[in-house]
């Protein structure tokens, strides 16, 4: 095991989430989730809805207590939430009583406690500029569209200068045009800032376009990594080029085939886990 921190920048090992089951063994929603992220890498986590992808992300973010397993960033053990891992949620999660600028400022204040007010403001303005909201600094969230609100959410997350950026289906609630627009915005920023990123998504094309590797999750309970797919397209990416790539559909097919297989084997799997829970046996589920 090499201790090369840039190759093993984020190490997630045997991450498990168990919820107590009053009538048997604990239900393990996610079990033994392993993943290693290189510095600056963008990794998507894809899977059927309800498979536990968001659980993984919230555990990494520290918002959801970890039942078992470990998490290390840059070789350091991490527990609990912190601005080193900033999150963009599915809903923009802006505080409706604050303007755009104040929303971004809230986090910046925590991360730059020694900066002057003016400096902090400049930081906020810089990131709002990056996401294209220079004109809407003093607007309230209710005065903006969903896409614009999500941009604020992104600016707020990136302004924290996080070591790891966690995106939890950030475009899930947007229409497809806005979604593409926002994907490009994020990729542009990530190409520049080189932030290690984990994206939760259920959109196959989004996963291929945005990420360096795609982590496919099996269906829960006891969801875990089913397969990892490297996406070799060079960065910075141009959407049209990626889509036109002769092998694009091979990647797409691999992902869809995986998801379909999960869907088909779901019933059998659930049956197996159910039996196991009832018997309380120690045998691992062999599918």
């Amino acid at each position: 095991m090499s201790k090369n921190t840039s190759n093993r920048y984020v190490e997630i090992s045997n991450l498990t989430k168990a919820y107590p089951n009053p009538f048997g063994r604990d239900i393990e929603v996610v079990k033994d989730f392993n993943m290693i992220l290189k510095k600056g890498e963008i990794v998507s986590v894809i899977g059927h809805s309800g498979c536990g992808k968001s659980t993984v992300l919230t555990m990494v973010a520290g918002l959801n207590p970890i039942s078992a397993g470990e998490l290390a960033v840059e070789g350091k053990q991490i527990s609990g939430p912190g601005p080193d891992r900033s999150v963009v949620f599915q809903s923009p999660c802006l505080l409706p009583w604050m303007t755009t600028l104040e929303n971004v400022m809230l986090g910046v204040k925590q991360c730059y406690p020694h900066g002057t007010r003016k400096q902090r403001r400049q930081i906020c303005e810089h990131y709002l500029n990056l996401v294209g909201l220079a004109d809407s600094m003093h607007k309230y969230p209710r005065e903006m569209s969903g896409g614009m609100q999500q941009r604020v959410g992104i600016a707020r997350a990136i302004a924290l200068k996080p070591q790891v950026l966690l995106l939890d289906e950030p475009f899930g609630r947007l229409d497809s045009l806005t979604r593409m627009d926002l994907q490009d915005t994020i990729l542009e920023i990530l190409d520049r800032e080189k932030i290690t990123t984990m994206v939760i998504t259920h959109d196959v094309d989004e996963a291929i376009y945005m990420s360096d590797r795609i982590c496919m999750m099996t269906n829960g309970p006891e969801a875990t990594v089913g397969q990892i797919l490297e996406v070799p397209f060079a960065r910075p990416r141009v959407r049209a080029d990626v889509l036109d790539h002769p092998r694009y559909y091979d990647f797409r097919f691999a992902l869809i085939a995986f998801l379909e297989k999960q869907e088909h084997s779901k019933d059998a799997h659930i049956q197996a886990v159910h039996e196991k829970l009832q018997q309380g046996s120690e045998e691992p589920v062999s599918a």
């Binding site: 099996t218 875990t224 990594v225 990892i228 797919l229 490297e230 996406v231 990647f251 691999a254």
Partner: peptide, 25 residues
């Protein structure tokens, strides 16, 4: 050929897929 192409980009962590399962136990 398609299988061959995609397989070179596939990785299995411990426990995942047939190779991962063989590794695990």
């Amino acid at each position: 050929s398609s299988f061959e192409f995609i397989s070179q980009y596939v990785r299995f962590p411990k426990g995942a897929g047939v190779p991962g399962a063989c590794w695990k136990d």
